[in-house]
Amino acid sequence: MRALVTGLSTYWGGRVAQALEQRSDVEVVVGVDTRDPRTPLERTEFVRTDSSHSILARIVRATQVDTIVHTHLVVDSTRATSRTLHEINVIGTMNLLAAAGAPSSPVRKVVLKSSGLVYGANKADPYFFREDMPRTGPATTPVERSLLEVEGFVRDFADDNPHVDVSLLRFANVLGVDIETPFTAALRRPVVPEILGFDPRLQFVHEDDVVEALMYSINNDIPGVYNVGADGNLPWSKVCAIVGKRRVALPFVFTNLAAEPARLLRLWDLPPEAMQILRFGRTIDNTRYKRAGFHYSYTTASTIEAFAQALRLAGTIGDSSPSYRYEREVEDFFRHSPAVVRPD
């Protein structure tokens, strides 16, 4: 297998590349991103690209990769303006799929990391979203719109290229100490917001399960759309109780306006789509991916429990993982210098 990972410097891209490096049948791992990788990698070749992946067609042709893992979809709208969001998600995916679907392209598998955000969170929602259920209200935020657009491209691509296995994974809100999402950031604060009078059912997925889920699609030929979220759900009040945080109620009208001071103070930065989840909650049905053979290591409850324990540890000893800085010359030396003895 020759694999290309987009978003190498994101948490997911780095973890997937690390996992691919461990496999002996993976000959080549190429990673692209706009920034330097933040995870130590042994043999992954890093190529710096622009955010919209316009160079990707050349990379694919030159490296003859057969598998593309697209982790570079922005699902956290606090990280990017709506303009860069569009550039990365929509244009980036368009270029990626164009590269993968070019005539005589060697690509036979594409795995994408999408999000449960495509379902939205509305009062008319079913309590458990299956993959074939449409959202019940129009997409109101740029990130949701861009992801829906991306999924449209992916569907068209899968239709036009029946010889390529396309797996699209929609993840529930991810929880873990190594990853920063609006929810993990909020849960690290001493006080956590809630919307007055609402205690919705929330579902999470552990960061390790996310990597396992991506690897499972890479390792197996299971094309299709799959929800990835841990079993069960818990009321937001219980989530906060397990993590041991006090809640502060935001008014149920003008909620986003009321949350603005906290955003400015950098207390919490919960985007409107996360606020919708704090109002109505969202649980996605994970049975389809389980039926495809995937096993979760964590339930929603144990995901939160594990997060709480890791937070407690971090509160005592600080950051336990040594920080890593990518230095091109050093990496190039270890990878390509004839002086380095490499085991075969």
Partner: peptide, 17 residues
């Protein structure tokens, strides 16, 4: 084994609320 965490629901609220 990641399951050092004991399975607890910590709440009698079921998945329907």
């Amino acid at each position: 084994a990641p399951e050092t965490v004991e399975e607890v629901r910590r709440s009698d609220v079921d998945q329907w609320g």
